[in-house]
Amino acid sequence: SPEEIKAKALDLLNKKLHRANKFGQDQADIDSLQRQINRVEKFGVDLNSKLAEELGLV
Rank of each mutant, 00 (worst) to 15 (best):
G24M: 10
D31Y: 04
K15N: 05
D26S: 15
D11E: 15
N38A: 14
L57E: 03
L10R: 02
H18L: 13
Q36G: 01
N21P: 02
N21E: 13
H18R: 13
V58C: 07
I37P: 00
E53S: 10
R35G: 06
D11M: 11
L12R: 05
L10W: 01
K16Q: 06
K6A: 04
L55W: 03
Q36L: 15
Q27G: 07
K50G: 06
S1K: 09
G44T: 01
N14V: 09
E54W: 14
A9E: 00
V40G: 00
L33W: 03
F43C: 10
K50L: 10
S1W: 09
D29W: 15
Q34A: 06
N14Y: 15
A7E: 09
K8W: 12
N48W: 07
G56V: 03
H18W: 11
P2C: 12
R39A: 15
P2G: 09
E41T: 11
G44H: 01
G56I: 03
Q27D: 05
S32P: 01
L33M: 04
F23I: 11
V58F: 11
D29Q: 14
N14F: 15
K16N: 03
K15Y: 08
L47F: 08
G24N: 09
F23R: 09
D29K: 15
Q34K: 13
S32V: 10
K8I: 12
L33K: 00
L47C: 06
S1F: 11
V58H: 13
K6R: 12
L10M: 05
V45M: 05
I37R: 02
A28P: 04
R39G: 07
V58L: 07
R39Q: 14
Q34L: 15
E53V: 14
R35A: 14
E3M: 08
L47V: 07
G44S: 02
L12Y: 14
N38D: 14
Q36A: 09
N48R: 11
E4C: 13
L17D: 00
E4T: 10
N14H: 15
R35K: 12
A9K: 00
N48G: 12
S49C: 04
L12S: 03
I30N: 03
D31V: 08
L55Q: 00
N38P: 00
G56S: 05
V40Q: 00
D26P: 15
P2T: 11
A9D: 00
I5H: 08
L10K: 03
F23P: 04
V40H: 00
L47A: 07
L13C: 01
S32E: 15
L55G: 01
V45L: 12
A28L: 08
D46K: 07
Q34W: 08
H18P: 01
S32K: 14
R35N: 14
G56F: 06
S1Q: 07
I30R: 06
K16V: 03
E4I: 08
L13G: 00
L57V: 07
D29H: 14
A7T: 09
R35V: 11
I5L: 10
K16M: 12
N14G: 06
K50S: 12
D29P: 02
D46S: 09
I30Q: 03
H18S: 12
L12F: 12
L10S: 00
N48H: 11
N48L: 07
P2D: 13
N38Y: 10
I30F: 03
E3L: 09
K50W: 11
A20D: 03
G44M: 01
K6E: 03
L13P: 00
E53Y: 12
S1D: 12
A20Q: 04
L13D: 00
A28S: 11
E54P: 00
I5Y: 11
N14P: 00
V45T: 01
E41L: 12
E53A: 12
I37V: 05
E4K: 08
V45D: 01
I5A: 06
E4V: 08
S32A: 15
F23Y: 14
S32Q: 12
L51W: 06
N38G: 07
L57M: 07
G56R: 04
P2M: 14
K42M: 12
L12I: 11
E53G: 07
Q27L: 09
R35M: 14
G44P: 01
L57P: 01
A28M: 10
